Simulated assay, not measured.
Amino acid sequence: MKPNGVAIRALRTANRCGLRELEEKTGLSRGYLSRLERGERGASPDTVLLIAHVLDVPPEAITREDL
């Protein structure tokens, strides 16, 4: 699974969730999450699943299988 940073950011902001809150809920650093949203970092399948769970969306909503 390859994360789609644009989708992660859009869903996070739609849920009124800041990076700090996502950091607290996932245990991932804000810096990492920010780089992930900008497409500068990849993520393991477990990380994608964790973020999807916290955002309450299916993993497919925040991944790009076509890359």
Rank of each mutant, 00 (worst) to 15 (best):
V48T: 03
S44Y: 12
V6Y: 09
E21C: 02
L11E: 08
L33D: 03
V6F: 06
V48C: 05
N15F: 07
T63E: 11
S29Y: 15
V48M: 07
P58A: 15
D66L: 10
E40C: 00
D56N: 12
S44I: 06
K25G: 00
A10G: 15
T26P: 01
R12P: 10
D56S: 13
S29A: 09
T63M: 12
I62R: 02
A52D: 01
P3K: 09
L36V: 04
A43F: 10
P58C: 10
R20S: 04
L28K: 10
D46Y: 14
K2Q: 12
A7Q: 08
G27Y: 14
P3D: 05
N15M: 06
E65T: 14
T13G: 08
R16S: 11
I8F: 04
S34C: 09
A14L: 08
A43I: 05
R12D: 08
G31K: 13
P58F: 15
R16H: 13
E40A: 04
I51M: 05
P59C: 13
G39L: 00
I8R: 03
G5P: 11
D56Q: 14
L33E: 03
R35Q: 12
V54N: 00
G27V: 12
L67A: 13
H53L: 07
C17G: 03
R38E: 02
G39F: 01
R9P: 15
P3Y: 04
T13P: 14
S29C: 08
L28G: 04
E40V: 02
L22T: 01
P45N: 08
V57E: 10
A52G: 02
Y32K: 00
K25H: 06
R35L: 08
V57Y: 08
K2S: 04
T47N: 11
A52E: 00
V48N: 06
A14C: 11
V57T: 14
A43N: 09
S29R: 13
L19S: 02
R41F: 01
A14V: 07
R9E: 11
I51E: 00
M1D: 04
H53D: 09
L33Q: 05
E24T: 06
K2Y: 10
P59M: 15
T26W: 09
L55I: 04
G5T: 05
E24F: 11
K2C: 03
E24Q: 14
R38H: 07
E40S: 02
G31T: 15
G31S: 14
S44G: 09
G18P: 00
E65Y: 13
L50Q: 05
P3R: 05
R41K: 12
L55T: 04
T13V: 13
A10I: 07
V54R: 02
L36P: 10
